[in-house]
Simulated assay, not measured.
Amino acid sequence: MASLRAIRRMFCTAADTAAAPVTGSRWERLKNSKAGVWCRSLFSDYKDASWEVVVGLWERPVKASVYASLLAGTWACFYTKPDCSSFEATLLECSNQLGLLSPWIRNGTSDSHIQSLVKLRNEGRLRHASLGLLSLVYCADYDPDTTLYEAQCSNLSVPWRELPERMLDVGFVGRWWVLDLKMKDCDVNEEEFKHLPAHMQVTLPPSVREVERNEKLHKESWLVLTLEEEGEETNVVNIKEERVSEESQIATLKE
């Protein structure tokens, strides 16, 4: 009896549902569904969050500008971070620049640093690591194509704690800072001046007046002499010769 009552109630409910009029369109039914309610609540949350951000920017412009500057600087550092190919190109450029200099005027520090890097590159021992905002170049023990067990075993690879000791250069904001520092005054051989006194080893930059005077003399050296100036110079020379001849005659008379 209970089963018959349940079956009868089910049929009655189905008939009532079929007889009930359809209210609303398909779009309204989609909005009132679980997926529609969830999407509307998500959109409302994002709208409120965006409005709070706009209000915060309007109320605290200094703080907002600082945050914007930090974000822009971070993006610029990440975008201008040099890669491994950039390091090799810079290394070859520095090597060619030193190759054009004579060994007598070549800086010993720059030459030894570049030669060691070129040797490591030829041996395939240079490694590049990207750390997000900057890049690192360090040396490894073996070439990656070497078939030795020590080179292929991952447990014998270079540990991270030894990275500061093996680090060769740091790339940041599109530059390799150690290379730039080592190549400073690469055409000045300090060994050539070590025997000079201390006051002669130190050179000071010229003052503004000296620079202006040198530029003025350089410009005047390119000027063409006029005939009047040449005539005046010849007159001066003739007067000097006459004076010399008179002095020589007086000296002979005295003798």
Rank of each mutant, 00 (worst) to 15 (best):
P164S: 07
S116I: 14
L42N: 08
V244P: 00
K194N: 05
S3I: 07
G124S: 12
P197S: 06
E190W: 04
L253N: 15
A6M: 04
V66H: 03
L131W: 06
V66Y: 00
S50P: 02
A251W: 11
S33N: 04
V54S: 09
R29C: 09
K254F: 15
L179S: 04
R60L: 09
R121Q: 13
L100E: 14
L227T: 15
V158R: 13
R175G: 01
Y138V: 05
V22R: 03
K184C: 02
G174A: 00
K184I: 01
R26A: 05
S50N: 10
E59G: 10
D83E: 12
D83F: 01
L227K: 11
T80S: 13
E93M: 14
D180H: 10
G73I: 02
L179H: 08
L148I: 12
E192Q: 13
R166C: 01
V202W: 13
R29D: 04
S86G: 15
L126P: 05
S86R: 02
F78D: 08
G56E: 06
A140G: 15
Q249C: 05
L117A: 08
S85Q: 08
S130W: 00
V170L: 15
V22K: 07
E220D: 14
G99E: 13
K63V: 11
C94D: 10
T147W: 08
K254L: 14
N189L: 00
A14H: 05
W51Y: 15
L92F: 14
C94A: 15
F43W: 04
D83H: 05
V208T: 04
R26I: 02
V178H: 14
E59T: 13
D83I: 09
L117P: 01
E241F: 15
G99I: 13
E215S: 03
V236L: 13
S248R: 08
G231T: 07
D45Y: 06
E230T: 09
N235I: 15
G108R: 08
V237Q: 09
S135P: 11
V37S: 11
A18V: 11
N189A: 03
L30H: 13
R60V: 10
L70C: 12
A6G: 04
L126S: 05
V244N: 10
S102E: 01
Y149D: 13
S50D: 09
M167H: 04
V188S: 04
L91V: 01
Q152V: 00
C186Y: 07
P103V: 01
E246A: 12
P159D: 14
H218M: 06
E241A: 07
R127S: 10
S95A: 14
